[in-house]
C-alpha cells in the first residue's frame, strides 16, 4: 500500500536532497546547501570527521530532534517530505526508511525480552511474526543460539551483541531505504565484516538503497557506489566512488585518502 506512494518500482531516485539548509531553533545552520541523491539499489557513503554534519543529514531525513529544514527539499521516492512533522514522517520509518543509529545498543527496551519487542515491531508494520525467520536473521549476523537471545533482555547482553541484534531487527522490516550511522564503529573487525556483508546482501537481494554515514573512507571505498565528502556542514566533493578515490579535486578529500594509506 505504502509502495504506491513511496518506493514504487518506477521511481528512480530513492532519496534526493536538494539545496538543504537546516538548523536547530535560532542557531546558525548545521547543514548548508546540501545536495545529494541516492539512486534505487545503490549505496551512498557520506564521509567526514565528527562534527562535519553527516549525522545531521540523517536527522534531517528522519525529522528527529527538532532539526528544522530551512531551505531546500528532501524527497523520498520522489515525494517531498521536508515539510512533514516528525509524527507524519514516522509513518515512513521502519519499512520505507530503516534507520540504524550510531549506538544502537540502547535502542531496545533494556529490561524486556527481545522476543516480545520484535513481535511488537513487526506487528506495527502488519508483518507476521515467524520465529524461524527471526532466528535466521540473527544467524546471518553471526549470532549463536538465536533462540536463547530472543529470550534474553538487552541489559544482560554485551554492547556488540545488542548492536548486531538491532541491525538484524531493522533488516527484518526490509526497508527500501536504509540509513546507517557508523553502524560498525563499536564492533570488532570480524563482526564488522559480517555486518558489512549483510548490508551488501540486502542491497543485492532486495535492492535496498543504502545511505551510510562513516568516518572510515576505507570502508566506503569497499562498499559504496558513490561517495560524498562532508566538512563543516557542507559537501566538499561527491561522485562515483572510483572518481572520488582516484581523481580527488578537493584538498580535504586528498588528505583523507592519504590517511588511509598512512594508517
Amino acid at each position: 500500500m505504502e509502495d504506491n506512494q513511496y518506493g514504487s518500482k518506477i521511481n528512480k531516485h530513492a532519496l534526493r536532497i536538494t539545496d538543504l539548509t537546516a538548523g536547530y531553533g535560532e542557531d546558525s545552520p548545521v547543514l548548508q546547501g546540501i545536495s545529494l541523491s541516492l539512486e534505487k539499489g545503490q549505496i551512498l557513503c557520506m564521509v567526514g570527521e565528527s562534527g562535519s554534519g553527516k549525522t545531521s543529514v540523517i536527522r534531517a531525513i528522519t525529522g528527529w530532534e527538532n532539526l528544522q529544514v530551512r531551505e531546500g527539499s528532501i524527497e523520498v521516492w520522489e515525494n517531498d517530505i521536508s515539510h512533514l512533522s516528525f509524527k507524519e514522517r514516522r509513518k515512513l520509518l521502519g519499512r520505507t526508511i530503516g534507520y540504524i543509529p550510531q549506538n544502537p545498543a540502547g535502542s531496545f527496551n533494556p529490561i524486556r525480552k527481545y522476543e516480545p519487542q520484535i513481535r511488537e515491531m513487526l506487528a506495527s508494520h502488519d508483518i507476521r511474526y515467524v520465529r524461524s525467520e527471526v532466528e535466521e536473521a540473527f544467524a546471518r549476523m553471526g549470532l549463536d543460539s538465536p533462540a536463547s537471545l530472543l529470550g534474553s533482555r538487552p541489559y544482560e547482553l554485551s554492547g556488540g551483541m545488542n548492536q548486531r541484534i538491532v541491525i538484524a531487527a531493522v533488516m527484518l522490516l526490509e526497508p527500501s531505504i536504509l540509513l546507517c550511522d557508523e553502524p560498525t564503529s563499536a564492533l570488532d573487525v570480524m563482526t564488522a565484516n559480517l555486518v558489512k556483508d549483510e548490508f551488501l546482501r540486502l542491497n543485492k537481494e532486495h535492492g535496498t538503497s543504502i545511505l551510510m554515514v562513516t568516518h572510515n573512507l576505507g570502508l566506503a571505498n569497499i562498499m559504496a557506489d558513490s561517495i560524498a565528502i562532508m566538512k563543516r556542514g557542507r559537501i566538499v566533493e561527491s561522485g562515483d566512488t572510483e572518481k572520488v578515490m582516484c581523481n580527488p579535486t578537493d584538498d580535504y578529500t586528498k588528505s583523507l585518502i592519504g590517511d588511509i594509506f598512512n594508517l
Partner: peptide, 24 residues
C-alpha cells in the same frame, strides 16, 4: 529514554511505546 527513540525510529506504534513505558 533511548529505547523510546529507538522504537519510534523503527516505526513502532505509539500504543506499543506506551506498553513499554508502563512496564518500565
Amino acid at each position: 529514554e533511548d529505547y523510546v527513540t529507538g522504537m519510534r525510529m523503527r516505526g513502532v506504534k505509539e500504543r506499543y511505546v506506551a506498553v513499554n513505558i508502563i512496564r518500565n
